[in-house]
Design a protein around this nucleic acid. Sequence first.
DNA 1: CTGGATCCTCAACGATACTG
DNA 2: CAGTATCGTTGAGGATCCAG
Lengths: 226, 226
Amino acid sequence: MTNQHYGQFCGLARAAEIVGQRWTLLILRDLNVGRRRYSDLVAGLPGIPTNTLASRLKELEEAGIVARLAPSGTERAVVYELTPRGAELGPALDALGRWGAGGMRTPREGEIVTTASITAALRVAAGDGVVPAEWDVAYTVRVGDVETHLIMRDGTITAGPGPAENPDLVIAAGPQIRDLLAGELDAHTAISTGAVQLEGDASLFERFADSLHVPYSPNVPAEAPA
Amino acid sequence: MTNQHYGQFCGLARAAEIVGQRWTLLILRDLNVGRRRYSDLVAGLPGIPTNTLASRLKELEEAGIVARLAPSGTERAVVYELTPRGAELGPALDALGRWGAGGMRTPREGEIVTTASITAALRVAAGDGVVPAEWDVAYTVRVGDVETHLIMRDGTITAGPGPAENPDLVIAAGPQIRDLLAGELDAHTAISTGAVQLEGDASLFERFADSLHVPYSPNVPAEAPA
DNA sequence: CTGGATCCTCAACGATACTG
DNA sequence: CAGTATCGTTGAGGATCCAG
């Protein structure tokens, strides 16, 4: 209940008192994608102890970052969502996610992807999300059994959970999609090697690959050389 | 030694495994200001247990984020600095610090400021740091007994630890400087109420106040309504 | 079935003392 | 100066149970 304090009158210290708690950053990532029920969060955060999730939600609510919406009307479940103040964390989450992705090459043993993680990755990869205004394309992006959508419309890119309604192109891939975003795997090779499978207008794949980018960072250390 | 893992192939999760550790964000903030000795870090992080600092530095070194420079030549002390990969965290630290500062009004009981916290705050407040190219001003900014400098030159703003060499203006203030940066306290009032004291060319104060900005966020919750 | 609360165990953190 | 050693305390992890 009593949060840890660093005793410094410093924005980063105040932020660290909140997001420095274990699991909190991932909870916020999931909520940043959209409102979620308690059980959705449990499902999207494999391994989180239920008491930890309950504590975090309570702390975040007290901090004014998360709102707890009691069941009402057609909704018959408790729903959590970010407050405006919580939504302001978006740029910081993106910056951290971009940095972390830079050092991320292949999955470690047992690592999974979730809807929120793919959605967040696509948003980060979209950068400022500016594309030619005349583009109007809907993609469904499938990684493992997770489906997300990415829309290029009105000059911007938006990404969200779940498939697109009428996708022009469905892109299915494994973790190798990371190499594509890093620019280490070009669109043609990705298709010819089977790293990605396409359903729909395959000519739209190139602008997908060109518009999304999260480079690898140089000098990434060996992982746990034991 | 064995870091906590979240089991997700996700940039934010990877970042959280590192910066989600207690004290790590503040250690990185201090190192982001410049290379530091072990004892500098201890001094800049009041309350950090020495074994925790040692553990964090070792973990960060193994992660390729911090470099440990053994004594050599004129240097007769161990020095820590960010690697290039560690320096890439800068934007994320800034984004987090800006968010945290938005919810920060007055210091809590016992909260202090440090050289690194003020330096980081000035950098965040400078934003993209673009000012008219013809400006060439050096400020010393003193908060409590902490001295930092801020230079506007060649169209950009830079901030660092320690006083300016030949300051055009020395600005001394308490935590109320926060209100100034938030735009809640205008330059004239700040001077007339004694919230800030100036030594030097006071006419340069206005461009300081105009160029630096970290707004308060709306809907900041009451602090611990108990 | 959702949304938690409780209990217990253990690893991580925190404070202090001490050393190469 | 730059840490390690020791030991007490806290919080996370995991399983289970309970209320609406």
